Computed example of a mutant assay.
Amino acid sequence: MNILVVDDEEVIRSGLERTITRQFPEHRVLLAGSPAEAVELLRSRPVDLVLTDVLMPGMTGLELMAFSRAKQPQVKWVVISAYSEFAYAQEAVRLGARAYLLKPIGKDSLIALIEELGCEIAEERERGREADLMKRNLRFLREAVLARWFAGLDLKGTELAPFAEDHPHFHLVMVRLESDADTKLEHFIVENVLTELMEASGRGFVASVDSRCLLGLVTLREGSGMSGLNDQLRSHLKRYLKTPFQVMHSARIEDLAAVPAEVRRMRASMAAQGYEHYTSGGEKAIEVAVQYIHTHYSDEISLEKVASIVYLNPVYFSQLFKQRTGSGFKEYVTQLRLAQAMELLRSSELKIGDIAERVGYPDVRHFSQIFRKKTGFTPSEYRQETGQGETDEAGEGI
């Protein structure tokens, strides 16, 4: 059995791995320090059981579980939470988690839970092996068909009977992501959201066709319309995606031969179409970024580093940060550092060089130049003006 442990705290990951491998040497333990790593492992490795923390940067364990249900319904989930996060655990059980573990995690309860779930997984695996094989073969066929359509290649030599029987008519849905960074997490989100919406409106499937685009095919049931599915898809993606995106769908298609031309039309239309941006997900990402800046302003900090922490493209993060805070990233960090420096100049007798280092400026001359440019005073002049001590011009480089 393959067990994936997802937690941003290394000590918890190591402790769980140690307990499991000692008691169950036959099981394999995979470790992920973030939801993005977990997504990659879930996509590339067979996973039977996931133990996930509730609160992590970028994406909660509950969101990770919700997005995984459509593509990997066989995976069993156990949520790890602190007592104060009990409401999250209740929501996890509602979403389908088999159990939750409270921190600190008891070894006996963990061992008993893994024994119970291990037996269930072994029985289910035996019953579903043949059915899973058939589903995988059909999925590969579908993905190959979509990829060839997207690339403008013909389908000669491809067996399309199972495909055509299930979808005598259909619509295509194309989603394009705007990012130069790794978009594995975003692809995972789009695939799962679109799959669930398709299943709610009819039947269909979706596949990643290149690093930025996904293509879906849906046959709607009677009474369902593409406008409703399209609106729901945009709404969900605005909430969860961490990068700008485009969505487009085709009219109803009844002839497979018409698909290549329709795909070319959709791609051309997207080239002239603007991108949409996510809303609440962006607010959450900027909240996390601001908290990180306030905690680490004394360290070496850059826009690229903070953007990577909240899983955003740096260019998009810069735009979103200014939109949410009213200041550019560099200006925000500078103002925060200077505010902390002024407080220390007013309330302490620390040397100016020490204050500069404490607020993130190891070069005291650079600090003094920035301070004077922003306030009109040197640090020593500011200290005198506020009635704190004697002049300390040493090293200010004025």
Rank of each mutant, 00 (worst) to 15 (best):
R176L: 02
C119E: 13
R139P: 01
G157Y: 11
Y100S: 09
A92Y: 11
M134Q: 14
I105H: 06
L153A: 09
V93Q: 02
Y83M: 09
L177N: 06
A122G: 01
L102P: 04
M174S: 10
I121D: 09
L172Q: 08
L133D: 06
K135C: 02
R129P: 01
E126G: 01
L141R: 12
K135F: 08
T158K: 06
F140N: 10
G152L: 03
L185M: 12
I121Q: 14
E85Y: 03
L102R: 03
A97Y: 10
P104D: 11
G106S: 14
R139Y: 13
I111A: 11
L138G: 01
L177E: 03
E143L: 01
R142M: 04
D166R: 14
R136Y: 12
Y100T: 04
E91F: 00
D180A: 14
G118C: 08
G96E: 02
P162H: 09
G96K: 04
D154W: 03
D180N: 13
L177F: 04
N137D: 11
E124F: 06
T183D: 03
L113M: 12
L160Q: 07
E165H: 09
A99M: 07
H171I: 02
K107A: 15
I114D: 13
D182L: 07
F150V: 01
V93G: 07
A131I: 14
Y100D: 06
L101C: 05
E126W: 02
L146D: 06
F86G: 00
E85A: 08
F140R: 10
F163C: 00
L102C: 03
K135S: 10
E130V: 15
